[in-house]
């Protein structure tokens, strides 16, 4: 089993419980053992970086130092926001020695800033072949809109392996499950981030534009890689319908749930019944599809010779 350092983030076992329920079994099936960083602490999220830069670097740095002590050179942070805070801290310290020095003084822990952080899409892409090989119940053309939001692709120097304007990594993962990624326009538009409470109106406005566009592109579900995006588009979707004729809801799935479904895992086990926007219709449509794998080539050839 391959071992990878793991930083779950504060929402992973609470408001983003579906992510936890789906990601860990998927990783296990891929032969990856996640080792949670012991006694990890909050990355600071938005609130730290709007308050003080030093705090916003020191809080993630503590976790990077823990990872370093554990002997990891790379850690996976499945929440896009946590990933961003950790990766930005790592880069800022690498580029600004004076800042790194101050952080070192605050931390009281040995720290060489040697740990790299990887996000969920880059991680799954690096295991694309294994994902393809582990698909037993392909998603047979189900139309999915891949929503990156902000922090999986920006800032470009930090979230670096995919193009920040025309990314393809989530589409490639979705394609590996045999679902069809739809072409749509709002994949990179912000969902409102951490403003779910403080500016609910903005979040609803932004979310509405995203969900409407996915719907117009024919998507049956929207795929995300971030608990905040999930929260904004799932929990707040009902409020988006206020004041207008209700449109058909679009369920919001975590990328790990999509992969898990293709691996034959039961929807309930992936947390699919915990969403605010029901996934029932989606799962029923999926169940009705003929999801057997195509006949193998040798089998066909044998038939030909006989016939």
């Amino acid at each position: 089993m391959k071992r990878v350092g793991f930083y779950p983030g504060c929402t992973f076992r609470s408001t983003a419980k579906e992510y936890d329920m789906s990601l860990l079994p998927v990783l296990e099936r891929l032969g990856i053992e996640v080792v949670e960083l012991p006694d990890w602490s909050c990355c600071g999220a938005t609130s730290a970086h709007v308050t003080q830069e030093l705090l916003s670097v020191a809080l993630p740095a503590r976790n990077l130092a823990i990872a370093e002590a554990q002997g990891f050179d790379t850690i996976l942070a499945p929440c896009a926001a946590c990933f961003s805070r950790l990766a930005v801290a790592q880069r800022k310290m690498a580029e600004r020695p004076a800042l790194a020095q101050r952080v070192q003084e605050i931390l009281d822990r040995p720290f060489g800033n040697s740990v790299k952080v990887i996000n969920i899409t880059d991680f799954l892409i690096s295991h694309l072949t294994e994902i393809g090989a582990s698909v037993t119940t392909p998603l047979q053309g189900m139309k999915l809109a891949c929503y990156y939001g902000c922090l999986l692709v920006r800032p470009h120097g930090v979230a670096h392996s995919d193009d920040p304007e025309v990314p393809t990594s989530m589409e490639r993962i979705v394609a590996a499950t045999k679902a069809t990624p739809v072409k749509w326009n709002m994949a990179l538009e912000c969902c409102g981030g951490g403003m779910s409470f403080a500016r609910t109106g903005s979040v609803i406005r932004l979310g509405r534009a995203i969900v409407d566009d996915a719907r117009a592109a024919g998507a049956q579900a929207l795929v995300v890689g971030c608990p905040m995006c999930h929260n904004n588009l799932d929990l707040r979707q009902k409020a988006m319908e206020k004041g207008r004729e209700t449109k058909p809801p679009i369920p919001i799935l975590f990328i790990s749930q999509v992969v898990g479904l293709a691996m034959g895992m039961a929807p309930k086990s992936l947390g699919a019944n915990l969403h605010f926007v029901s996934t029932r219709d989606f799962m029923e449509t999926l169940a009705r599809l003929d999801r057997a794998l195509p006949e193998t080539a040798t089998h066909k050839a044998t038939n030909k010779e006989v016939g």
């Binding site: 970086h49 902000c150 920006r154 800032p155 920040p164 990179l188 912000c190 981030g193 403003m195």
Partner: peptide
């Protein structure tokens, strides 16, 4: 300045 979502679209 408090309405900025730090989406980094501008910086990009």
């Amino acid at each position: 300045i408090w309405l900025c979502l730090s989406c980094e679209t501008c910086s990009g």
